[in-house]
Amino acid sequence: MTRSFPKAQVVVYPGSNCDRDALWALKYVGFDAEFIGIHDHIDADLVILPGGFSYGDYLRVGAVAAREPIASEIKDFVNRGGLVIGICNGFQILIEMRLLSGALLQNSTGKFICKVVELEVSDITTPFTNYFIKGERILLPIAHGFGRYVKTDELKTNVVFRYTEDVNGSDEFIAGVSNNDKNVIGLMPHPERSIERLICSDDGLRVFLSAFNYIKLKKTQEDQKANAKVGV
C-alpha cells in the first residue's frame, strides 16, 4: 500500500458490458482507473465487476466467470480487505463465487426488465454508501433478466439497497447486499449508468464518491500512523 492515489480496476470478461461506463465513472470521481482481463493481477484499492452477459451466461448467470483465474485473485483481494463492487452480472458473479450470500434467479415476471427504478438506501455504513442518507430514495436504472434475489442465509444477508416496490420478485425487495465485513457489495441496478443528471440521474455517482472518500480517508490514517511511528 505505497500508492498515494486511489486506484481502481475494472475486470473485463468476454461478454461484459458497461465496463466503459464504469471506467468513466471511476475517472470522473478521481480514481486512477484501468481495465484488467481474466489472466491479469489485481493491483488496486477497488475492483469493479461490471454488468453484461459473461460467457453468454449459458450455464447459469455468472457461473463460468466465477471460476476464471481472476476469481482466486479477487478472493485474496477481499480477504486482504480490498473493496469490490459487483454490478448486475458482477453481482451474479460474486454470488457464484460465494463472496455474497443468496441466489439470483429469473425475474418472477419471466421477462427482461429495463427501466429506471426507485431504491431506498438501507445501509449507509458501507464504504460504498457513506455519501447517502439512511432511508434516502434514489433513482437508478436496472436492466436484467435474472435479478430476483432469494435469501438463502438469514445471518449473512446484509441489505444495502431495496426497491421501493416489487420490481422482479426479490425477497424483501432486495436490490443490493454486502458481505459481513462490508467490503464487498453487489447490486442489480447500474450506478455507473447514472452519473449525469442529463441521462437518468446522478445518484449513482455517489457510490463511486463514497468508495473514493473511504479509500482516501483510510490512506490518510495509514500515512498518519506511519508518520507517527517515524516521529517516535
Binding site: A103, L105, Q106, S108, G110, R148, V150, G169
Partner: peptide, 14 residues
C-alpha cells in the same frame, strides 16, 4: 432441477 422451495417462473408459464 431447481429445489422445490425455489420458484420457477418458466415452469409456471408452461
Amino acid at each position: 432441477q431447481y429445489k422445490s422451495n425455489v420458484r420457477d417462473p418458466r415452469g409456471e408459464m408452461i
